[in-house]
């Protein structure tokens, strides 16, 4: 009787979990916290977020975790990600030297450099996609 009730409760909880965005956000945060600890303890130069990403990929791959337990939470994080960058920008206020020539030079480097990287990478990948992968007949992501 009792195991049956446990199972039923667990299934009910799982259903609730698959529909609850906030619980999934919490779960993703817990994965990150655990990964952060792993990163600190192992002295790897890999940040916690990436260890967490690899960890979750493993759990998903071995079917320990279902994708439905994370999908809603992940969707939210990906949609609102730009908000998390914003508090880093006013850091320019701590660097008075950037309000002048140095700042303009750095801005120019960033703008030009990023444009070069975007264009260069796009062309080399496009080239490689059609030259190197020529033999694979699959065209699903053209």
């Amino acid at each position: 009787m009792l195991p049956h009730t446990f199972k039923k409760t667990f299934i009910l909880f799982k259903r609730k979990f698959h529909r609850s965005r906030i619980l999934q956000i919490g779960l993703l945060s817990i994965f990150w916290l655990v990964a952060q600890e792993i990163s600190l303890l192992s002295h790897l130069p890999i940040p916690g977020g990436v260890i967490g990403l690899l960890l979750v990929l493993m759990l998903l791959y071995f079917h320990i975790l279902s994708i439905r337990s994370l999908a809603l939470g992940a969707e939210w994080f990906l949609a609102e990600m730009l908000l998390f960058f914003i508090p880093a920008v006013p850091a320019v206020l701590n660097h008075q030297e950037f309000f002048g020539w140095t700042g303009l030079k750095i801005l120019a480097i960033i703008i030009l450099g990023t444009t070069i990287v975007i264009i260069g990478t796009a062309f080399i990948v496009d080239f490689s996609f059609y030259k190197v992968e020529k033999h694979s007949k699959n065209k699903n992501i053209q």
Binding site: L28, S29, W32, G52, L53, L70, A74, L78
Partner: peptide, 9 residues
Amino acid sequence: GPATVAFAV
């Protein structure tokens, strides 16, 4: 941090 983890999905 958790946002990076979210890319796993």
